[in-house]
Design a protein around this nucleic acid. Structure first.
Lengths: 358, 358
DNA sequence: ATGAAAGCGCTAACAG
DNA sequence: CTGTTAGCGCTTTCAT
């Protein structure tokens, strides 16, 4: 018997000798009952070990006290930063945190959003794979805030990683690199498209060649292919879509007996856990991921408090762009001479590990 | 207007020209209505974009379709694995995943458990900081499964990291180490107590000295203090409570100009993300963390299906112990000679970073 | 096979 | 300040 023994407001009211509604008030709006009743009810609740039931409360009040965080892949360290930031904010504000992994699939994402629509008060969509239209449509039913994605009419916060990519190219150019590779992420990624665009523009302005590689899955395992492609393209430096790939590139190069940064300079994006103690330590674009999670969450909660004027496309939806910065570590250095022919034969087959803990 | 425009079963029923109860059945028990009505209702639901409301369903059915995962610190990579495993399992089974971070506090943990008690169908408690009694009490109200914690009468899954620690000591002893340090984790940690106990026993049996250091917070930042303590204790090897600390130890030793494993061998626990590409790669006790998360979750879901006979302490609560193994990488090697006096002066002040993304 | 009706536990107007 | 009265949206008997 699951429901048995569950203490309800009714029990508390009975024990305190008041009406249910009074008990409700005593607990929720302590200011609207006499001090005496308040105490009596509180005592009764304590003695009975009463704890309000979420669903019932949600049903009658319309507020569930839950917020969903939707990410493409909980496995990716980047999203862990987002999870942390969101979790911290929600915890402090007394909200329950619902975590959804969409497995990088737009359909799965849409399905969950629809399913949760009436079960949560709002959602933070991190790096959504959905189309603008699909997001906008859902935003008209559920308060939404996007993270690293701009959709007209929908509030969101973005990390200025493209700006960081531009700086990375400046940095590399100043080190004498004339042929630089960009190892791209998933084709559906809005962020990747932005970075690629900026990289192209900056390279042109700097007068250096840019070779676009990929697309690759944003995983460590993709690093091997990216590294090989970069070497084959005769680039002297490579900027990867994210640190995971960059770390994979580092591993592959080491395996091929190529030295970083002597033979190839490597730059990552995000500065996730591990970037600083990789070997060599990774030059990367440090992004305030956790802060972004916090910001997106408070934006969402603020909306809710305002009575959630969520629909629409006319008024300017709040939008926040967080700055990033280039963190230079040992994986970047002066451009070296051309590689000796035949150098860098792989010593072992491609690594297959794409998860930290198999 | 939040509730406006929300499609309810009532709307669907109306459009399909049937009673609400019929619509409900058509959607939930397709077998108990005529094929005709079934289709009519389905069509209506589709056209209206109907999606059942969680709270209402929960209120009347008693099942919320949500499971909570309670962890001490979402920031710790170890729990990343747990989160992944849990998430994967819940997603596949159609459950909503609620994530709770207790900030390593027993009080916070208890409070959330009480609060969620009526809002979720069950919970997985990872590395709970609660007392056995507190856990047992809550388990009598909410189906619970523990992870890395044994409580009489409560089902759980544990990782045999202590066994791994014993193997690590064997390994170190075989390399000639005679004085080994164990850098302990949080005092409230059940896991740490187990590991310490096993380490002591094994050291005695092997005839080597064991120096217990700590307790330390299970963070990378604690590595510096642990490294200094190990060096001061004249140990030639150190086993850390987790990889985070071990990685911190590596960093501190590098900073002091000490070589690993020449001057000190280092062993971690868990084999989290980053252990393999740390410098040098970390010898560690590989634990199937993600699998543990999955196992705990399916154990919980199995209980729920059985009608959750949860209370009790008499019958044997299911318990699963997952094996671990020692993964030897470059951070361990033969015991070297005693350190030269005056060696290893720190070159920079203590590192302060304890989070990947500041 | 379908409809009517009774709640699930709580909040939110209304009266007093 | 407190009690009464309606529901919130859905599932579930119970009749029909």
């Amino acid at each position: 018997m699951t429901g048995a023994g569950q203490v309800t407001l009714r029990d508390v009211a009975e024990r305190a000798g008041v009406a249910i509604s009074t008990a409700s008030r005593a607990l929720a709006n302590p200011g609207r009952v006499s001090a005496a009743t308040r105490e009596r009810v509180r005592a009764a609740a304590d003695e009975l070990g009463y704890s309000p039931g979420g669903p019932a409360r949600a049903l009658s009040s319309g507020r569930t006290g839950m917020i969903a965080l939707v990410v493409p892949d909980v496995t990716n360290p980047f999203y862990f930063g987002v999870i942390r930031g969101t979790q911290a904010q929600l915890r402090d504000r007394g909200y329950v945190h619902v975590l959804v992994d969409t497995e990088e699939s737009a359909d799965v994402e849409a399905a969950w959003l629809d399913r949760l629509q009436r079960s949560v008060d709002g959602a933070v969509l991190a790096a959504s794979r959905l189309s603008d239209a699909a997001i906008a449509a859902r935003a008209s039913r559920l308060p939404l805030v996007t993270l690293n994605r701009d959709v007209p009419g929908v509030p969101g916060v973005t990390l200025d990683t493209p700006g960081g990519v531009a700086h990375a190219l400046d940095h590399l150019a100043s080190l004498g690199h004339r042929r630089i590779a960009y190892a791209g992420g998933p084709p559906e990624s809005w962020s990747d498209a932005r970075r690629r665009r900026v990289a192209r523009a900056r390279a042109r302005r700097l007068g250096v060649e840019l070779v676009v590689l990929g697309p690759y899955a944003p995983l460590q395992a993709s690093g091997a292919a990216a590294a090989d492609a970069a070497v084959h393209a005769a680039a002297s430096a490579v900027v990867a879509f994210n640190d995971l790939m960059a770390i994979g590139i580092l591993a592959r190069l080491a395996d091929r007996g190529l030295a970083v940064p002597r033979d190839l300079s490597v730059v990552g994006c995000d500065d996730v856990f591990g970037a600083d103690f990789a070997h060599p330590p990774l030059t990367t674009i440090t992004a305030p991921v956790e802060r972004a999670g916090r910001a997106a969450t408070s934006m969402l909660l603020a909306r809710l408090d305002d009575g959630a004027p969520r629909v629409t496309g006319d008024d300017a939806a709040p939008r926040l762009a967080l700055p990033t910065h280039l963190t230079i570590r040992a994986s970047t250095g002066p451009a070296g001479g051309p590689l000796a022919a035949g150098a860098g034969e792989p010593r072992t087959p491609l690594p297959t590990r794409d998860q930290p803990n198999p």
